[in-house]
Design a protein around this nucleic acid. Sequence first.
DNA 1: TGCCAGGCCGGGT
DNA 2: ACCCGGCATGGC
Length: 215
Amino acid sequence: MKKTDVLMEIYKRLFEHFGPQHWWPGDTPFEICVGAVLTQNTNWQNVEKAIENLKKKGLLDPFKLYEIPHQELAETIRPCGFFNIKAKRLKNFITLLVEKFDGSLDKLFSLGLEKAREELLSVKGLGKETVDSMLLYAGRFPIFVVDAYTHRILNRHSLIDEDASYDELQELFMANLPPDTQLFNEYHALLVACGKNYCRKKVPLCKECPLKALF
DNA sequence: TGCCAGGCCGGGT
DNA sequence: ACCCGGCATGGC
């Protein structure tokens, strides 16, 4: 069976089981980018509280975040955990956005996928997953987002090695699927849904998993 | 109650 | 080039 067919079969099963996920859960591209940083190794529920705090204070704005002192920002996003380091990372991102792109995500994204990715990856605290999430869900670029769930699910169904890298996984999807933003959007969200609901740590293989007895 | 969550960095080997 | 500890809150 060709890799393309395998990947499409997985997508089909996940979509039929979970339905459309309507990602990213955020109103604006900027909110999506902020959420991408805050959700690093963190439950989305906690991130929602932090984002709600930012909204209440009217801080969900590049220039407001540019001005706010570290201490106050950290306190505001406290519920999402790792708040000191995340406040720094947000600041680093905001500094790039304001000082190099007039606070405009459109200007950043207008560089195109490759250049925008390079710019974002140069920011301390933004790794590949965070950056690719911004590019896919805020920038609408057709780039596949890999995360811990992607890794665990594919490994558990013997489709990749335990030690496969981010780049290898991303390449697997991108070399064998059409570069379709909506497909990549839904696919990643579905993998997260599957991981949260079924493919948990320590549970070797659960009976309800839609990918059970895959091939 | 303990374990885990949509990572990433930095220091030590 | 790996490997590992640190970062921290809140929900199940």
